[in-house]
């Protein structure tokens, strides 16, 4: 059986908000290491990879591996009933038909109990090759969100150019063009406000802004975001949170 108690419902609520528009149904794979999810969007352009490590729960118990097939829209509706500060407990039997969710207020004067039907999802698991990326850019998550939102007003695509001079986000569309260049900065008092660029070679890739804007729904989960790029491979966008991560992969646009 699975029993996983999370001190802050907000983590799960924000995570769901960050993935439910990309993915409709997905298996939550539970093992003794924690709860993970891997799913592609319908168009096979983007992939979501979530890990909530066992040590992020207190307590966490999972006797044998379980795949909980969940409609993310339904889970999101159930989680709307949880307050951000509620303690949330997930429970499932072995070979379960239902997932049980309990929301307790901090002072334990209110306990809400929900049961959600599970579904059978036949989902292929993709092998993601270990990649030593040529460019690793860490920046404030809010900055990345703003850049994606601003440039999506100009064009459907953005070209990200990482070089020793900085990282440049550029878009060109019918109304004109625009770009934002970030230089490396160092803010020792607020590391999450710094921008760092590690580069082994220059990288230039073009991506659909629609997906990037969607990824930035994860902004409330982390102060910083890391973009990892190599020429001709998918972009990795990672939000690290306490007790896990939310990663998005996005296939580039390529020359016809």
């Amino acid at each position: 059986m699975l029993e996983a108690r999370l001190a802050q419902a907000a983590v799960l609520k924000k995570t769901l908000d960050a993935i439910k528009e990309l993915v409709t149904d997905a298996n939550f794979d539970c093992s003794d290491g924690g709860i993970s999810l891997q799913a592609m969007d319908n168009s096979h352009v983007a992939l979501v990879s979530l890990l909530l490590r066992a040590d992020g729960f207190e307590p966490y118990r999972c006797d044998r591996n379980l795949a909980l097939g969940i409609n993310l829209n339904s889970l999101s509706k159930v989680l709307r009933s949880a307050q951000n500060e509620d303690i949330i407990t997930l429970k499932a039997a072995d070979d379960p038909d239902n997932l049980s969710l309990t929301f307790e207020s901090q002072n334990q004067d209110r306990i809400s109990e929900y049961e959600m039907k599970l579904m059978d999802i036949d989902q292929e698991h993709l092998g993601i090759p270990e990649t030593a990326y040529a460019a690793v850019i860490t920046m404030p998550a809010a900055e990345f969100q703003r850049i994606c939102r601003d440039l999506s007003g100009i064009s459907e695509s953005v070209t990200i150019d990482a070089s020793k001079d900085g990282v440049k986000f550029a878009s060109a569309g019918d109304i004109g063009n625009g770009s934002v260049t970030l230089k490396q900065t160092h803010n020792p008092e607020e590391p999450a406000l710094s921008t760092s660029i590690e580069l082994s070679e220059s990288v230039t890739l073009t991506f659909s802004l629609k997906y990037l804007v969607n990824f930035t729904k994860a902004t409330p989960l982390a102060g910083a975001v890391t973009l990892q790029m190599s020429n001709d491979v998918p972009l990795l966008v990672e939000y690290k949170m306490e007790g896990g991560y939310l990663r998005y992969y996005l296939a580039p646009k390529i020359q016809d």
Binding site: H44, V45, L47, E124, L126, I128, P129, P234, A251
Partner: peptide
């Protein structure tokens, strides 16, 4: 430019 598919980079395990 055209959108590449992730399936050409990541293969089912």
């Amino acid at each position: 430019m055209k959108q590449a598919s992730l399936s050409s980079f990541f293969v089912p395990q």
